[in-house]
Simulated assay, not measured.
Amino acid sequence: MKIAIVGVGKIALDQHVPAIKASPDWELAATCSRHGSVEGVEAFTDFAQLLEARPDIRVVSLCMPPVPRFDYARAAILAGRHVMLEKPPGASLAECHALESMARAQGVSLFATWHSRCADQVPAAKAWLADKRVTRAHITWRESVRKWHPGQDWVFEPGGMGVFDPGINALSILTEILPAPVHLTGALLEFPENRQTPIAARLAFSGHTSAEFDWREETRDIWQIEVATDAGTLTLQDGGARMVLNAVQSSATDATPSGEYPRLYAQMAALVQAGAIDMDLAPLVHVADAFMLGQRKTVAPFVF
């Protein structure tokens, strides 16, 4: 199937383009971006022109930041195109619900992607936890914003989500693997005095579940989820790439293609072929609740 990438930035070049080019399901037929392009692929700077000029492209993958994404998704859906949304699927829950309603009315597929759910050991962790009683769960998600978003001031603007941009990856795994849902009960959000979104957050959930997100970790990436149960402790490390059960590392068990984004594109191909929609918003609900319930603490200014 022919697909167009809209928004040719770091995530598109690092993850989306290689995943599409390696997939037997997809042909990267066009891009649309104000600043970026892909060598050998037809490039547009105006999305309306792309939609008009290339009716043969039935699927678009939207990779730009979340704030402008709604208008592009709306235009694509109303033009009868299937839409794949980079995480988070929108700048607000209302936008996401509106897009789902439009997609159902137009009869097109819509996919809210959560790439961390496609990490190697997430399916195995979900399967192991399915019949367990969870007694405690904790997320530690620490990384450097300078490393992963160098100079990208939009992450600190309204709608950019701040530390929840990586933190929602952890929440997407948590909501996937826990055998019973949890809800937020409180939060402490640390805002640099010169920024509009938080640089760190501590979250408390029902079910003795908690999380710590921090974008100021300059030493190493720490992406870990620990779940204590009545049958022992499961730990997902490296963002779900490794699983440890009761201090013993487990080997990979699923046979899907290696890499999170190839698995996402395989899922999108299946959705289009089935005429289905996947708009699970559980991770975004937790983020919205954190902004609603969280206490605000002002911390030192941040500059790149």
Score class of each variant (00 low, 15 high):
Leu188Met: 14
Ala282Asn: 12
Ala124Asn: 08
Gln196Thr: 05
His183Val: 10
Ala4Trp: 03
Leu189Gly: 04
Gln249His: 05
Ala204Met: 08
Gly259Asp: 01
Ile57Ala: 01
Gly207Gln: 08
Asp165His: 13
Trp141Val: 09
Thr185Gln: 08
Ala119His: 00
Ser109His: 09
Val59Tyr: 05
Lys10Asn: 10
Asp278Pro: 02
Pro301His: 11
Phe304Gln: 14
Asp214Val: 02
Ile168Glu: 04
Ala30Cys: 07
Pro158Gly: 13
Ala19Asp: 08
Thr113Ser: 14
Thr233Pro: 04
Asp120Cys: 00
Ile199Leu: 15
Ser210Gly: 13
Ser61Val: 10
Arg58Asn: 05
Thr253Ile: 09
Lys126Cys: 07
Ile222Pro: 00
Ile222His: 03
Glu52Pro: 00
Glu39Gln: 13
Leu99Pro: 01
Met84Gly: 14
Ala187Leu: 08
Ser210Arg: 11
Pro150Ile: 14
Glu212Leu: 08
Ala211Tyr: 03
Met161Leu: 15
Thr31Ile: 10
His115Pro: 12
Glu95Cys: 11
Ala53Arg: 14
Pro181Trp: 05
Ser61Thr: 10
Leu78Ser: 12
Pro88Asn: 11
Asn194Ala: 09
Ser144Met: 05
Val122Ile: 04
Gln267Pro: 05
Val182Tyr: 04
Glu190Pro: 00
Ala282Leu: 14
Gly151Cys: 07
Ala288Asn: 07
Ala53Gln: 15
Asp214Gln: 08
Pro55Trp: 11
Val60Thr: 04
Arg34Pro: 06
Ile222Ala: 02
Ala200Thr: 01
Leu203Met: 01
Ala187Pro: 05
Ala266Met: 13
His35Ser: 15
Glu39Val: 09
Asp254Tyr: 01
Trp141Met: 03
Trp114Ala: 11
Ala231Ile: 00
Leu129Tyr: 01
His183Tyr: 14
Arg220Cys: 02
Ser23Cys: 12
Trp141Ala: 03
Ala201His: 06
Glu27Ser: 11
Ala124Gln: 05
Ala252Cys: 10
Ser144Asp: 00
Lys147Phe: 13
Gln249Cys: 13
Ser109Gly: 04
Trp154Asn: 11
Lys297Asp: 13
Phe111Trp: 07
Asp221Ser: 10
Leu99Lys: 01
Ala187Thr: 10
Val285Ile: 15
His115Gly: 14
Cys63Val: 06
Thr185His: 02
